[in-house]
Write a protein that binds this DNA or RNA. Sequence first.
DNA 1: CATGTAACTAACTATTTGTTTAGATCGTCA
DNA 2: TGACGATCTAAACAAATAGTTAGTTACATG
Lengths: 238, 238
Amino acid sequence: MTDGKSEANRDEQIIDIGLAAPVDNSRPRVGRDSEGTKRDILLAAMHEFSEYGDGGARIDRIARRANANKSLIYSYFGNKEELYARVLREAYTQIRAGERELNLDKLEPREAIRALMKFTMEHYLRAPWFLRLLATENLRRGQTVRQIDKISELQSPLITQLKQVLDRGVASGAFKNDMNPVDLYILMASLFYFPISNSHTLPVVFGAQVTDPKWREHYLKSVQDMVVRHLENAPGGA
Amino acid sequence: MTDGKSEANRDEQIIDIGLAAPVDNSRPRVGRDSEGTKRDILLAAMHEFSEYGDGGARIDRIARRANANKSLIYSYFGNKEELYARVLREAYTQIRAGERELNLDKLEPREAIRALMKFTMEHYLRAPWFLRLLATENLRRGQTVRQIDKISELQSPLITQLKQVLDRGVASGAFKNDMNPVDLYILMASLFYFPISNSHTLPVVFGAQVTDPKWREHYLKSVQDMVVRHLENAPGGA
DNA sequence: CATGTAACTAACTATTTGTTTAGATCGTCA
DNA sequence: TGACGATCTAAACAAATAGTTAGTTACATG
């Protein structure tokens, strides 16, 4: 299962998981450079934990990938558990930063919802490593996320935007369904999380071409229509 | 991370994951009884792999839980990898068997969709271990499910039912949106998979009460309305 | 230049864990 | 009965792995 050889091979095959390169050379390294190394370790650990999960992650591989040493990892991060916690926090930070780039202010409410949905789908597609980390943390029953402090920072900035869009929609009469922004966020996340995170089993079991860009485009359009209509109509139907 | 003591504790806390009891005593055991033991091992392995994932699963614990011996496991199943494959197949078999109990023939198409959605949600809630196994297999990039033969048996019987409901709905004029049954299945699965499989991170990050039966009831009603309306309307919006 | 401190490394330890081996036990049927 | 094969077990092996230790290197500062 956790066979050394096959894992090594697997590691080679995966060239890019959408994270920064194993070692970050963007900032020039002068002499001893703890900050750079520390960041390299964190990035390598993000890669490792997303790739292999908590049980399968290996400190040795993280060290190798970061061009660092095991005991350096321990001196910086304490132990594997704490390193994982740092990874999880950093993952949320990065993903939320990405979400902050969307601006819906100028769009008519219906169009804003469509744009938000398109953005969400593409965001998930861009960062499969984050979905993997989410899956891992939920398999751990949220053991670690519960302990992270300043949890509010983990909350998506999309919630705020969503609230504004909904308010505008209700005010203008475009939306009759006065949904809770968090519930709407969950609804939208649901629609993209499943087909993307399960993109390995779905084609095998159902022959569903969920990885085909054509399918995705069609799916997006379909659920955009569905959700917008859902908001346009008062709950309970009729 | 995979600390012996804490895992032992964790094991105690989890009394019931919805699987059959660790050791199946329903059938009387007479003398040496390979079939019973073999089944016990499989059930124990299902528990173990759903609980700890592929990397975290331990043969020792499986043996203990099955009241069996490690080398017995090896003689029956070859190795950990093959045991995992058997677990995955058995999991699909069990879950699909459960899905076969739903009968929508007598229901009016709109009501049938609502019933199917309610059933799907409850099915997922009843079998969280299956969602965990799905998540695990997707973290493995479907490595194993791809190798299972007779994959068609893994496909959900709900697809067939869904097709009939859709056909009836289109025929009667109730549904104007002629959706592909597989796509509709994915849509419905999406809506319940995310809030249930991520039920450990969502409350922490968003304060969403996704585990509260009240929330679930409300959510179900909302997405039932949404999907039925989606089917009633022609794609592209009128 | 000497010295203290932080960055870094190699080698080691203790434990865990998948897997194997050699053998004991039991039911069966010739 | 007795011997054969299937069932089952205890103990051990070898590889992997989290974590530690003891030491070396580079740099800044007085």
